[in-house]
Amino acid sequence: MDLRPGDKRKALFRIKEALAARGHDAVMTYPAPGTQRALWLLLSLLTVLAAWLAEDGHPRRLALIVLALAWFKGVLLVEYYMGLRHAPRWLHALVQGWLAVVSSALLLSFF
């Protein structure tokens, strides 16, 4: 059976990847289970907090508080859920940058 050049290259790449993987502890890239649970709890609590503020509290500048909270939650999601803190800097910057630009523009619109 003829191996097309693309297949051969793919096979080589797999072997390289597997060798590289042996040198790293893959689990290091993801947060420990305890951290994962804590993250989830924190994000959920912040969500409920924001909703409660809107329903009952209704403080001044509710919009600003809530949007800032969303920004913060987003940062956590990008860092840990998307795992971009371990990604190439350009990608990390682009996504956090998107969040920053959108959030600050929205915050500004409520001033």
Binding site: A70, Y81, M82
Partner: peptide
């Protein structure tokens, strides 16, 4: 995660920020 991220902003902007 992208879908979730977008929702976080949407939820805050459309539903909560008043």
């Amino acid at each position: 995660h992208m879908v979730d991220l977008v929702w976080l902003v949407l939820f805050a902007l459309v539903y909560v920020a008043r």
